[in-house]
Computed example of a mutant assay.
Amino acid sequence: MPPPGTDLHRLMTRFPRAGTVDWIGLRPARDVPMREVDAVEAVAGAGLVGDRYGGGSGKRGVTLIQAEHLPAIAALAGHAAVAAATLRRNLVVSGIVLAALRGNRFRIGEVLLEGTDSCDPCSRMEAALGEGGYNAMRGMGGLCARILEGGTLRLGDRVEWVAA
C-alpha cells in the first residue's frame, strides 16, 4: 500500500459503495458437495465452523469470489451459467472489487478480515467446468482472507474496506 496522504493511497482506498454477501457455502470434506448456509461462525485465526479448512492456520480462513465474475467464468468455460458451489469458494460477494482488498483489512458484518492472497483455481476446475475450466477461471478465482476478529457472517452482510 502506498504511504497515506499520497494520491495513489487515496485512489486505492476509495470505493464507490460497500459490497454485499450474496452466497455462503461450506466444504465439509474433500470431494463432497458444498453445503449452502444462510450464516456461519467465523473463528479468528482459524476459519469457518463446519468448513474443512476451519481449523487451519488461518491464512486461508475464508475464500471469496466476485459475483460479477461468475457470468464471465461461465462464458469462458462454455456454459450458460455456473453455480457458486461449483467454484468451491466460501463467499460470493457483489458490489466491491475483491482484488482491491488483497493486503488490506475489510469488514463483513461483524467479522474483521485481512485479504492475504489471490485464490487461484485448482486442477479440480477441469472436472467441475470441463476441459479448459482451469484457464476459464484464471484471474477470477477470488481472494483468500485471514479472520482477525471472529463473529457471524450472514447473507446480506455489508463488505467494507477498513483503514489499518
Rank of each mutant, 00 (worst) to 15 (best):
S123Y: 12
E114S: 03
M140F: 14
F106K: 00
A84S: 11
P28A: 07
A80L: 05
A18V: 09
E114F: 08
A163Y: 15
A75M: 12
P71T: 13
A74P: 05
L11P: 03
A80V: 11
G156N: 07
A128G: 10
D38M: 01
G95N: 01
F106I: 03
A127P: 10
G130Y: 14
A67S: 13
S118C: 06
R138F: 12
G156K: 04
I147K: 02
P71K: 02
R88D: 06
P28Y: 11
Q66E: 14
G61W: 11
H9P: 00
A136G: 10
G58I: 07
V159F: 02
A18M: 10
Q66P: 06
R60Q: 14
A85S: 15
N90W: 02
M1V: 09
L26I: 07
L112W: 09
P33M: 11
M34P: 01
R30D: 14
V62Y: 08
L64M: 14
V37C: 00
A72V: 15
L8Y: 09
R14G: 04
A127G: 15
V97F: 09
G130Q: 10
A136M: 12
G55H: 13
V37I: 09
A74K: 00
V62A: 11
I24R: 03
A46V: 02
V43Q: 05
R27V: 05
W161G: 02
T6R: 13
A77I: 13
Y134Q: 02
A42E: 09
L76Y: 08
P121G: 05
T116W: 12
I24S: 00
V49P: 08
W23L: 02
G58V: 07
A72C: 12
G109H: 01
S118E: 15
A77D: 12
S57L: 14
V49Y: 09
R105G: 00
G151K: 08
S118R: 13
P16G: 02
A127H: 13
A77M: 13
V162M: 06
A72D: 15
A163L: 15
G56Y: 07
V111E: 06
R138M: 13
I147C: 03
G58P: 09
E160T: 12
G50E: 06
